[in-house]
């Protein structure tokens, strides 16, 4: 077994006097899906922002593939192979799917012009592999359904992530069928040996998707459970504070 792709130890984050995260430690292995659950304001999004370089931690250390890293901004985290699927997806609605996939990282031809052919070919290949069912790589984002958009956002993350994908409530706005599609896409990331950290308020989804579940309550790490070795009642008790880790 290989080592963890991400290793967080003793992470703490304070905003002014407010402690958003205290003493958080977690390992994520390649091909593993870890769910992060907790009530509103528990600190889940803050944790994702720390791992993606948006906020520096107040204390603690982050290691990628065993190497300690200090990420001063999101660009650096992306260069290290960490991609985020934001809650609002961060897609440019009027641009084509392929332009969104390569936004900010467009390949160029020898003449220094946009290499559209390559962007389109790679988009079509990726979309097919992930089974994101969009009408065409040329379609504008606004002509897609919510699930298709989510699929494009995940495809973008997948294309660029070499180590880790962080998903913040990827199905919060989706219907039943579209949620199932997105879950399939997330599950298919395991094959790519990428670590996945997913925030979700749906325990059903967490139990369908994850290998392990990490519970946060008011910034405290209550515990981590193997999904197979726990049940909803235990997780709910941990989230609400009826049970300590």
């Amino acid at each position: 077994m290989t080592g963890p792709v991400l290793e967080l130890s003793g992470i703490r984050k304070t905003f002014g006097g407010v402690t958003a995260i205290e003493d958080f430690s977690l390992e994520i292995f390649p091909g593993e899906i870890v769910a992060l659950v907790g009530d509103n304001g528990a600190g889940k999004s803050t944790l994702i922002k720390i791992v993606s370089g948006v906020h520096p931690p107040s204390a603690g250390s982050i290691a990628l593939d065993g190497q300690p890293v200090v990420m001063s901004n999101a660009t650096m985290a992306r260069m290290l192979g960490i991609e985020v699927v934001y809650q609002d997806l961060a897609l440019a609605d009027q641009q084509a799917v392929y332009m969104n996939l390569f936004l900010g990282r467009e390949p160029l031809t020898a003449l220094g012009l946009l290499d559209r052919r390559r962007m389109i070919a790679e988009t079509e290949k990726l979309v097919k592999e992930l089974d994101v069912r969009i009408p065409s790589a040329h379609a504008a984002i606004r002509d897609l359904s919510g699930g298709q958009r989510q699929g494009v956002a995940i495809a973008r993350a997948t294309h660029w992530a070499s180590k880790l994908i962080l998903l913040d409530e990827p199905t919060a706005a989706l219907g039943v069928a579209e949620t199932a599609r997105v879950e399939e896409i997330v599950r298919s990331l395991k094959k790519r040996n990428i670590g996945v950290l997913i925030i979700s308020h749906s325990l059903d989804q967490v139990f369908r998707l994850s290998d392990r579940i990490c519970v946060l309550r008011r910034g405290k790490q209550i515990g981590v459970r193997d999904t197979k070795a726990t049940d909803k009642n235990e997780i709910i008790a941990m989230i609400t504070g009826l049970k300590q880790g």
Partner: peptide, 28 residues
């Protein structure tokens, strides 16, 4: 026309006008 349609700068101009936050999180 070439700068607008066929360069990174043109693409980034469009992305910025379309969704400035998305452009920013993509490193633009």
């Amino acid at each position: 026309h070439i700068v607008f349609r066929e360069t990174r700068f043109g693409a980034h101009v469009l992305a910025t006008g379309d969704n400035a936050r998305a452009a920013a999180v993509c490193g633009i």
